[in-house]
Simulated scan of single mutants.
Amino acid sequence: METSLYMPVKGFLEKAGYVVKGEVGGCDIVGLSDADPPVLVVCELKLSFNLELILQAVDRAAVSDEVWIAARVSARGRGREADRRYRDLCRRLGIGMLGISDSGEVSVIVGSVSPMPRTNPKRRSRLMQEHRKRRGDPALGGSTRAPVMTAYRQQALGCAAALAAGPLRVREVRAGIPDAGKILLSNVYGWFDRLDRGIYGLTDAGREALLRWPQP
């Protein structure tokens, strides 16, 4: 699975000085540096190099300072990473190529030179905000079948954990979750029950969510 490539690439980017998180804003991997201004790096994962991977990278170039593609290299040396035309296309587009061996070793096949200008600053800003708001790194990059643990879902789970012992007023929940008022009112996941004005309890769906994603 593509998630098997996540940890090797995460380690590679962390060694380069980035804070790395998976599945942020639809991107498999997002790295953010502490520089001023920050450097935003995006990497897309596939089990093998193909055209779809390049198309994803071109899309991500609109919001990132560097964009990379990563895939497992062919044991027989017959994959696209051995095709000079594929490598030349990545160079012309400014897309970096990372190859991952069966043992998890990461090698730079083509460096990222980022000649393409950013064209979507709003989307870039949303991506950076999601990265910064998310606590820890709760999602493996390359995941496709499991719900993504977004910053919003993390805060909603925090509200659910606060209500697990019994109903509370919004201001009491807000003490630990600043956006609790909006989250409880919108009730996107159906986890909360409005018992009275400003008072909320937890639904069965909310209790099931806490069993699925236990909170510290």
Rank of each mutant, 00 (worst) to 15 (best):
I199G: 01
G96L: 12
M128N: 00
S107Y: 03
K133M: 14
A180Y: 08
R76S: 13
L184P: 04
T144I: 11
L89V: 09
K133S: 11
C159I: 03
G142H: 04
P115D: 08
S112Q: 05
P214T: 05
Q154A: 02
D65R: 11
L210S: 06
V39N: 02
F49D: 03
G25C: 10
S4C: 07
E81T: 12
A70C: 10
R132F: 01
Q155A: 08
M7I: 12
I183T: 02
A75Y: 05
R118D: 05
E44P: 10
L168H: 08
S114A: 15
G142S: 07
V42P: 08
A82Q: 15
L184S: 03
P167R: 13
C43F: 08
V63L: 12
D88E: 15
Y189N: 13
A209P: 08
E44V: 02
M128W: 02
L210K: 07
L157A: 00
A61L: 13
Q154V: 00
S186Y: 08
R134S: 12
W68H: 12
L195F: 03
R118Q: 15
D193Y: 07
S48C: 10
W68M: 09
I109L: 11
R132P: 00
G77S: 04
R194K: 15
N50G: 11
G17S: 11
L195G: 04
P138Q: 06
S143Y: 01
L93G: 07
R85P: 00
M116W: 14
A146G: 00
V19W: 02
C43P: 04
R145K: 14
D179V: 02
W213E: 03
M149C: 04
G96K: 09
K21H: 03
R118P: 03
V170Y: 04
L140E: 13
L184F: 04
S103D: 14
I29R: 09
S112C: 15
L45K: 09
L157D: 01
S107N: 09
G158S: 02
D28H: 08
V148D: 03
Q129L: 14
P121D: 10
G22D: 04
R72H: 10
L195Q: 15
G141F: 13
V19D: 15
S33P: 08
D196S: 14
V30R: 01
V41Y: 02
Y189M: 14
C27R: 14
I199R: 15
E66V: 06
I54V: 15
G31Q: 05
V24P: 00
G111D: 15
R132W: 01
